[in-house]
Amino acid sequence: MLTLESVSHAFGGHPVLEDIDLRLEPGQVLAIVGRSGCGKTTLLQIASGLLSPTRGRVEKRFRRLAYVFQEPRLLPWRTAWQNIAFGLKAMGAPPAEQRRVASALIERLGLAGAGPHHRPGAAGAHAPHRCRRLRPPHRGRDLATGRRSLS
């Protein structure tokens, strides 16, 4: 479960988020949509614990967090399979489980011979976690207008 109560955040004295209340129950899916620069990333960073709110309270009751960065963060010297299994290995999963989960995800997501940088990163987030933060591969595009932004 994730709860945000009266969460606000400012950068350099400029408010980005003000009095956000949110409760996300286990199994619920939430889409955060808005124009470029409206605070979506800031809200997700606060929810995931990468950024502390200026004001308010965040309560996170989940066992694990998977985080897919907006920019590709793959290890370029590793294969798609190795990038997907990386998080499982870091969590101490046995090699047999790493192979099983990574291979199943490669098959399920059509990543055999994977090319696009976001796809293996997103596949890594499908590994057994309880809370996931996903970012779309259309960085810098305002979905409401379809225009590119400079931010």
Results as ranks from 00 to 15, higher is better:
E71C: 02
E59F: 01
P76L: 01
Y67I: 04
F69K: 04
R78T: 03
R61E: 14
A90C: 14
M91I: 01
I84G: 02
A96W: 11
L88A: 11
Q70I: 10
R63D: 08
V58Q: 05
G87F: 09
F62T: 10
V58A: 02
G56A: 07
I84T: 04
V58Y: 09
G56R: 00
R78A: 07
A80W: 00
L75M: 15
R63E: 09
G56F: 00
A96K: 11
L65E: 11
R57V: 00
P72W: 05
E97I: 11
L65D: 06
E59T: 12
R61I: 09
P76V: 12
R64F: 12
Y67P: 05
K60T: 13
F69M: 03
G87I: 02
W77T: 14
R57K: 11
F86I: 03
R57P: 01
W77R: 12
P72L: 09
A90R: 14
L65K: 12
R64L: 14
W77M: 12
Q98R: 15
R64V: 11
E59M: 07
I84F: 03
L74G: 06
F86N: 03
V68K: 02
F69R: 02
E97G: 02
L75R: 10
G92Q: 12
R63V: 02
G87K: 06
M91C: 13
R57S: 00
F62A: 12
N83E: 04
P94H: 13
E59L: 12
I84P: 12
V58R: 00
G92L: 13
A66R: 03
Q82E: 14
P72M: 10
R57W: 00
K60M: 10
E71D: 13
R57H: 06
A90W: 08
E97S: 05
E97V: 07
L65T: 14
R64W: 14
E59Y: 04
A93F: 13
N83I: 14
L65S: 10
F86T: 02
M91P: 08
V68P: 03
P95R: 11
T79S: 15
P95T: 08
E97F: 04
L75K: 13
G87M: 08
L75P: 10
